[in-house]
């Protein structure tokens, strides 16, 4: 549905986005993850035909964003970082205006507006002037604006910013409900949001893509090894050197503990499971095994690793 090929954008000397490529299939939700200033908004603005790319190409539904911008614009709904609201209009009048300039006409118009207001939970505020709404409701009106013409592709720039936790959950449910019929790209710097709503993730940092894939594949790709957490009763130094000497163990770190008890974080080569042999050795050595479990790498770890240091080749 969306194909991005070596897309770049520079503002004078400043390079905002450089050589970004990715593809999104129909009906998927793609999470666009990156720290502030990474180039998320710039990339989205190029996809929505607001900014021309300095280099590379992007197509939406098979139409080029530069050459066939009108066709692209018919097919996208876009929620910018600050919702583009006319504050002196009522919610209904505003959605009516947006629907009309998006090409919804005649008998469908009122039906579309009602549906969208229902979906985003703003129907009971339809005659309120937008400037009187709270930030959360303004954000919803912004989302409604992007949805009102039922576009194939939705591009949402930080859709949950400024909402309270309950509203965030509601908006996420709305977005999840859109998958299947709509292709969605949403940007965020909130990690749980991505793991909860998105099927695919693109991590962007410093204008370049730092990682791409499903949450699981990203974890597998970046795992340096299997990680175990073990709580062992026994003289700390002895236990440490025993574990170090084991086959397959790359690294051992002491999380807490001292002379008698210790909690150790053990990293072993990928694909090996040292749990059985570790347990045997501990028992053989006369120590007490209190806890032993595998640690999963979280999205947080991946994000930090990808955005704070150079990716290891």
């Amino acid at each position: 549905m969306i194909e991005v090929n070596e897309l770049s954008k520079s503002y004078g000397e400043v390079v905002a986005v450089e050589g970004v490529s990715f593809a999104v299939g129909k009906g998927t939700i793609l999470g666009f993850l990156g720290p502030n200033g990474a180039g998320k908004t710039t990339t989205m603005r190029m996809l929505t035909c607001y900014l021309p790319p300095s280099g590379g190409q992007a197509t939406v539904a098979g139409f080029d964003v530069v050459e066939e911008s009108m066709e692209v614009r018919k097919r996208i709904g876009y929620l910018p970082e600050t919702p583009p609201l006319y504050l002196d209009m009522t919610v209904r009048a505003y959605l009516r205006f947006v629907a009309r300039i998006k090409g919804v006409t005649g008998p469908q118009l009122n039906g579309r507006i009602d549906d969208t207001m229902e979906k985003t939970g703003i129907a009971h505020h339809q005659n309120t002037v937008i400037s009187h709404l709270s930030k959360g409701y303004k954000q919803r009106v912004g989302l409604a604006q992007a949805l009102v013409h039922s576009p194939d592709v939705l591009i949402l720039d930080e859709p949950t910013v400024g909402l309270d936790p309950k509203q965030i959950i509601e908006i996420r449910e709305v977005i999840k409900g859109l998958a299947g019929d709509h292709t969605v790209i949403l940007s965020t710097h909130i990690l749980p949001e991505v793991s909860m709503t998105c099927e695919k993730i693109v991590i962007i940092n410093g204008g370049r893509i730092a990682g791409e894939g499903t949450p699981e594949s990203l974890i597998a790709q970046l795992k340096e090894g299997e990680v175990l957490r073990a709580s062992i009763g026994g003289p700390g130094q002895e236990v440490l050197s025993m574990i170090r000497a084991m086959d397959g163990v790359i690294d051992v770190a002491v999380e807490s503990g001292g002379e008698e008890d210790g909690v150790f974080i053990i990293t072993s080569t990928p694909g090996t499971d040292v749990r059985d042999s570790l347990a045997r050795q501990i028992v053989d050595g006369g120590y007490a095994l209190r806890e032993l479990r595998g640690l999963d790498m979280t999205l947080e770890d991946i994000f930090l690793r990808l955005t704070t240091e150079e990716v290891k080749a």
Binding site: R45, T48, C49, Y50, M70, R73, K74, I76, Y78, P80, T82, P84, L85, Y86, L87, V98, I101, K102, G103, Q145
Partner: peptide, 14 residues
């Protein structure tokens, strides 16, 4: 100033 130009520019309207 309010960013609504972004709505107009990304809508299928010349």
């Amino acid at each position: 100033k309010t960013g609504t130009i972004e709505l107009l520019m990304t809508s299928p309207i010349s």
